[in-house]
Structure formats: C-alpha cells, structure tokens
C-alpha cells in the first residue's frame, strides 16, 4: 500500500513537472493546451476517500498554478473534477467486475472504456478551466473551441502516457 502511495506521489511529481516544463509551453493554435496533471487524479483507485481526492486535486492544481503564475485557476477546475470523478468512474466502469476497488487503467477498463473515461474527465476539466479563466460567459465561441481542442489533445497525450506505463509495467 505504501508502495502504491509512493508510486502515486511519484507520478504526481513527475506529471506536474511535465506539465510546467513542457505542457504549459504548448499552445497549439492558441487554443489547445495539454493537461498532463490530470493523470494522477485519473488513476487513483475507486475506493479512494473523496476527501483524499479533493486534497490531492487541490495540491496538484496549486502546484501547477504556482508554476504557471495562475494561482487558483487550475486548482479550482481540478476540484470540480475531483468532486465529479467518482460519478464519472461509476458511469464508465466495466459492469462485470468483483467487489474489488477499480484502479482505472487500460488493463482494467480496456482501451475503449479508459479513453471514454479519460475523455469525460478531460472535458469536465477543460470546461471548468476555461470558464473559470474567462470568469464569465463572453467570447463563448473561443471558449468552446478551446475546450474541445484541449480535451482532444489531453486525451491523446494521456493515452500515450498510459501506453508508456502499461508497457513499462
């Protein structure tokens, strides 16, 4: 268990680093920005207490924010994700499984399930992120474009990371 906590912690640090060193500098067309930092939140087991989810989401978000010079922005969006993640996971979890906690991954959910789950979480995160960034409902067109583009890019990149982790494991 301590092994897995350490593992999640390591993944968190690594992906925050990836986010602030690489992700934050990628703005494809000025609309699409990869959200690597979602990955540690994505792969937490389904029996993770909600408060742990919220706290880790907050810490992750604040860490990213500090390096992106946007205090509170990522954190507030990521909190929404952490709140909704149990529900989303419930929806996309495979129906035929035991009582064991589900650890979301390609191995447990198949590619289709994992990609759909990741897409949903990314969509929630991107929506929350861009609306909180805009702090209102003006320039709706560019916000929606940013949401779609960011979601697509993030899903692709997170799938790539998932593929890497699977191959390594």
């Amino acid at each position: 268990m301590s092994q897995s906590i350490f593992s999640y912690f390591a993944w968190g640090i690594a992906l925050i680093a990836l986010q602030v060193l690489v992700g934050n500098h990628i703005h494809i067309g000025g609309v699409a920005m990869p959200m690597f930092y979602l990955y540690p939140i994505l792969i937490l087991p389904s029996d993770t207490p909600r408060w742990v989810l919220l706290i880790s989401a907050f810490l992750t978000g604040i860490s990213v924010d500090i390096f992106s010079n946007t205090p509170g922005l990522t954190a507030s969006a990521l909190l929404v994700v952490a709140l909704l993640r149990p529900v989303i996971l419930q929806v996309f979890a495979p129906t035929e499984r035991g009582d064991d906690a589900l650890i979301p991954s390609v191995r447990t959910m198949e590619w289709s399930g994992f990609v759909r789950y990741t897409s949903a979480v990314c969509l929630v995160q991107a929506t929350a992120f861009y609306f909180i960034e805009a702090f209102g409902f003006f320039r709706l067109g560019s916000i929606l474009l940013s949401i779609v583009a960011t979601t697509l890019l993030s899903v692709v990149l997170i799938s790539a990371i998932e593929m890497l982790r699977m191959r390594k494991a």
Partner: peptide, 12 residues
C-alpha cells in the same frame, strides 16, 4: 477548497 482557490484566483 473551491472558495480558497477562487479567492486566490481573484486575489492574484
């Protein structure tokens, strides 16, 4: 936490 985040957001 959301209030904290949004406070940070509008503050900084």
């Amino acid at each position: 936490l959301e209030i904290l985040s949004l406070t940070l957001l509008v503050r900084f």
